[in-house]
Amino acid sequence: MAVIDQTSKFGKVFWPLLAWTVALIFFFPIFWLVFTSFKTDADAVKPEFLFKFTPTLENYTNMTENYDYWRFAINSVITSTFATLFALFVGVPAAYAMAFNPSRHTKDILVWMLSTKMLPAAAVLYPMTFLTKNYLGIFDTHFLIIVVLSLINLPIVIWMLFTYFKEIPKEIIEAGKMDGVSTWGEIKDILIPLAWGGVASTALLCFIFCWNEAYWTVRLTTTDAATLSKLIEGNRAPEGLFFGRLSAVSAAAVGPIVVLGWFCQKQLVRGLTFGAVK
């Protein structure tokens, strides 16, 4: 590439500048959310205080009184963490078997798993409510949300792990077999250390998807297991009076996840295109 560089002098300044401008525009709403969260509710809606105001932390210190933030946040942490762990617990062995002992049906099974992800949630809304409320009695429990979140993400987890595992040379696993290592030993001592990066980024991505889920967490909870999605959804129309405090609670809900996302942006491609884009 060094041989031919066609970019003109003008282009050398213009394109990077344009890239920066567009990136800042895209980031602006997030910046604005955080920026507004440091204004009082009164300042936040006055145009004359658009940039001139005294920053305050009161929106953050009052999150508990205003919104009971921590109760929802803890629910989000609990459900997302355990859903991720459960998805890995079921997904790692399955992906391992498919990557290292594929059968004729492996491809079909993988494609079928993916197809379960495409079932529109709204189509099964009532049966889910009906079953969990009337028969199982687990409506609005952490258990239910953990199971649902892990099942909707299980296909993606298995797919991502499968693509990572496939990159590990088969010979290493076979050498382990020759030495008489058990299947569990293979997974624990050979596979996990080798695929550690892949498993970690799969977990991270699964956690992010669980955290952001906004259909089941809203429709299958009322209070006990309600997550941050439910909290924000419930405060959708503050009629302008509470921009400051709503910004603070929203920023607190998305901030950690956006930062986590920065670390797994490369793996995101693999996770979302099921290895079809390289």
């Binding site: 997030i30 924000i232 959804e233 405060n235 959708r236 910004s247 929203s250």
Partner: peptide, 16 residues
Amino acid sequence: LLISPFFVMPAVNAVL
């Protein structure tokens, strides 16, 4: 900066 919006939860996106 460009990738960040993708990680914002849909409910916050809409409210914002």
